[in-house]
Design a protein around this nucleic acid. Structure first.
Length: 300
DNA sequence: ATAGGGTTAG
């Protein structure tokens, strides 16, 4: 028992694939591969290093995969270029009749549908989730919303949301971000008011999606308001939020405010730099400066 | 023992 615990923690801490191979060999010689928790963790570890063929080999070595194994192999493929493989595994799981899909299975296979725009499969799985009693499952519903959004199924997406009896912060954030990504920026901003009335609160995720909507429609005043909400609630250490603010201010023509946010960030990533560079590039196009007077203002 | 959501550009 202690050994299992030890192996699991080794696998969790492992951060290079060579060490993983060693632990793997150790597990095999110890005869621990037959322990579901171990084999499952091993499948996930290989998947985390993007060594999907290794995950597959391990999966197929299992005589009788349990639900967690199916879930892990489906999730491993759900977001990558071979998302079709995730759907094939899902089909295999359903036809094996040995383990039944749960909310985690549906969640992953729906992601795969969104990844490769498998519209019909998504609708089929939607039906299966209802028949299996997952209509009010928020994990499943969030992924249904996102999958329908991925191929422009606005009406179906909204229907899933409206028919959900209990909606939490994540459900609302997902719907808002999907509206915004589909180009319905005004609807996303209106939904924020409804969200506030619904009493689920909001967080940095909400603000980021909303700022992206502001950036696209040039809603500077709302953007400023969202910035204030971010400050008031202590979200300003969030890199995503800083990046979204830079983009919003730059696109709304407030380069000075974009710079102010940029300079005040504790951490910056490629998004931060790209957004501020884009903002400055566009501003230069508008003002046509005769000399590069702003060349040093970033790093003052 | 697997477990939901966020940003730019091209």
């Amino acid at each position: 028992m202690l050994k299992i615990f030890h192996l699991l923690s080794l696998l969790t801490q492992c951060n290079d694939v060579h060490t993983l191979h060693k632990i793997h060999a150790h597990i095999v010689t110890d005869g621990c591969f037959t322990i579901p928790a171990i084999s499952n963790k091993l499948i996930n570890s290989y998947a985390n290093f993007n060594a999907l063929p290794s995950s597959q080999i391990l999966f197929h070595q299992l005589g009788n995969p349990s639900t967690i194994h199916w879930n892990s192999i489906i999730k491993a493929f759900s977001l990558g270029p071979n998302a079709l493989q995730a759907i094939k595994y899902y089909n295999g799981m359903v036809s094996s009749h040995l383990s039944r899909p749960n909310s985690i299975t549906f969640s992953s296979v729906l992601k795969a549908c969104g990844t490769i725009n498998a519209t019909n499969k998504c609708m089929e799985i939607h039906g299966s989730t209802i028949r299996s009693g997952f209509s009010s499952d928020m994990l499943v519903s969030t992924n249904l919303i996102r999958s329908y959004a991925a191929f422009g199924g606005l009406v179906s997406m909204r229907k899933v949301f409206d028919e959900l009896t209990k909606k939490d912060l994540v459900t609302w954030n997902s719907l808002i971000s999907c509206y915004s990504k589909m180009g319905f920026h005004h609807d996303a901003l209106i939904l924020f008011d409804e969200m506030k009335s619904a009493g689920v609160g909001f967080d940095g995720f909400s603000l980021v999606s909303l700022l992206s909507a502001c950036a696209d429609v040039g809603a500077l005043d709302i953007g400023v308001e969202l910035h204030g909400l971010g400050r008031k609630n202590g979200f300003m250490d969030n890199v995503y939020l800083g990046n979204a603010l830079i983009d919003m201010y730059a696109k709304c023509g407030s380069l000075d405010k974009a710079l102010h946010v940029f300079n005040g960030m504790k951490k910056r990533d490629n998004f931060s730099w790209n957004s501020i560079i884009m903002g400055m590039g566009c501003m230069d196009l508008v003002t046509k400066p005769s000399h590069y007077s702003r060349q040093c203002c970033l790093l003052e």
